[in-house]
């Protein structure tokens, strides 16, 4: 009933917008299976050799592993410090100064590329920190705000009197946290993990200054490869990354329902 009142021109416009949104991704998918040495769409012939080619190029093999390691470690670390912080911000709201929650907004205000460059100068060069560790610090800071914010949002609807009840019945505080609080914010933690993981895997700007010939991440390697070769290998790597996105969305759908992502 509501739908019928929308101007048909607006509906047409929306259809065009969605073609615009989906079209390029479908083109990448088509180009990745094309049996040609150049990128083309619609695909001419069908082959999966460009997917095999990804793993024949050692730079891709290496950077895929680096990117996965980095994403898991950075997300894990960010949750490790982020969950307690989110808990403190909710549980001890009155005792903590109000600027403390602002601290976790700061990484959003600083452009990622500036963060990467500053880490290169002060941490990698200035403190002679190994480059992988510096990258890890960068990615941890990149995803920390998501972790704190998303876990905080789910803690905001948690009734802390349940926790108090457990403690007053003799449950030790740490045990209470793991058996009472954490299970209740499980969906927030999963959402934070997924958002953080996908942000880290796809990041260019923070990693840009923290990679070099010795160590690189997948997106940076893709950028470097495109500038030299314009073959369908890049399209097939892109499809791999899209499959990762699909997998992530499937996990979210299973655990939280997809409307969660719209928030």
């Amino acid at each position: 009933m509501m739908t019928s009142r929308i101007n048909p021109l607006l509906i047409l416009f929306t259809v065009v917008v969605y073609i615009f949104l989906m079209g390029p991704l479908i083109i990448v998918l088509g180009a990745s299976v094309s049996d040609t040495t150049y990128l083309t769409f619609p695909p001419q012939g069908l082959t999966l050799r460009w997917f095999e080619n990804i793993f024949e190029i050692s730079a891709f093999r290496r950077t895929i592993i680096t990117s996965l390691e980095l994403a898991f470690l950075a997300t894990g670390l960010a949750l490790l410090v982020g969950i307690p912080a989110a808990y403190a911000l909710n549980r001890y709201r009155i005792k903590l100064p109000s600027w403390l929650s602002t601290v976790f907004v700061l990484p959003i205000l600083v452009p990622e590329i500036v963060l990467g460059f500053s880490l290169l100068k002060s941490v990698a060069v200035g403190m002679e920190t190994p480059i992988f560790l510096t990258l890890l610090i960068g990615h941890m800071l990149l995803v920390l705000p998501y972790c704190v914010r998303v876990v905080s949002a789910s803690l905001a609807s948690f009734d802390f009197s349940i926790e108090e009840a457990a403690v007053s019945l003799g449950s030790p505080p740490v045990k209470t946290f793991f058996t009472i609080v954490l299970p209740n914010v499980r969906s927030g933690v999963i959402a934070a993990f997924i958002l953080a993981f996908i942000t880290s895997i796809n990041d260019v700007s923070t990693s840009l200054f923290l990679t070099g010939p010795g160590i690189s991440t997948l997106p940076i390697q893709i950028l470097a490869h495109v500038e030299q070769f314009f073959d369908p290998t890049i399209a097939s790597v892109s499809v791999l990354l899209m499959l990762l996105t699909v997998a992530v969305m499937a996990i979210v759908e299973r655990t939280l329902g997809l409307t969660f992502l719209a928030k």
């Binding site: 390029p24 769409f41 950028l223 890049i234 892109s238 996105t245 992502l261």
Partner: peptide
């Protein structure tokens, strides 16, 4: 959501093609 979760590099590369 799908394009949003797909990386910047992939989405820019599409426009190169």
């Amino acid at each position: 959501v799908f394009p949003l979760l797909t990386g910047v590099v992939v989405r820019s590369f599409a426009w190169l093609i």
